[in-house]
């Protein structure tokens, strides 16, 4: 966990050989990037002042822009761009150490648990 603010979360993951998805290029598996963005998305929802303390992913769509550079840490930033009483809409971006072009972007919908609002 790198940063947590209202409806925003930044989470990073170090490179690990156990996460390799392509043995030839040593590139990390897309699923590991998905998992990181799902975690960041969920954390962003829970960090939103109008959302409850728990959340579940309804759907998550990942677009893979390029391969992550082997050996580099991957950082996911997620933001809630709209929160209703029951659903939070989240966008997330994952970058490696070359921050210009993201490795992947995601959009997702997460549940907002009614009756557990912190405000």
């Amino acid at each position: 966990m790198e940063d947590l603010a209202d409806g925003m979360a930044v989470i990073s993951m170090p490179y690990d050989e156990a996460l390799i998805g392509d043995p030839v290029t040593k590139v990390i598996h897309g699923g590991a990037v998905s998992a990181l963005m799902d975690t960041a998305g969920g954390a962003a929802v829970m960090a939103h002042p109008r959302a409850g303390v728990g959340t579940a992913t309804l759907d998550l769509r990942i677009d893979y822009m390029r391969s992550a550079t082997p050996g580099q840490r991957i950082t996911a930033t997620a933001t809630c761009y709209h929160v209703t009483r029951s659903v939070a809409f989240v966008r997330a971006t994952a970058c490696d150490e070359d921050g210009d072009l993201p490795v992947a972007t995601a959009t997702g919908a997460f549940t907002v648990i009614p009756g557990k609002s912190k405000t």
């Binding site: 998805g21 598996h29 897309g30 699923g31 590991a32 998905s34 998992a35 990181l36 963005m37 799902d38 975690t39 969920g42 728990g54 579940a56 992913t57 998550l60 990942i62």
Partner: peptide, 23 residues
């Protein structure tokens, strides 16, 4: 496990599992 209260599988584990199955 992603949500220890329920407990429920982590959405990221599920996504990874389905993506591995596809590949």
């Amino acid at each position: 496990i992603g949500n220890p209260m329920l407990p429920a599988l982590h959405g990221g584990a599920t996504a990874s599992f389905l993506e591995i199955t596809a590949i």
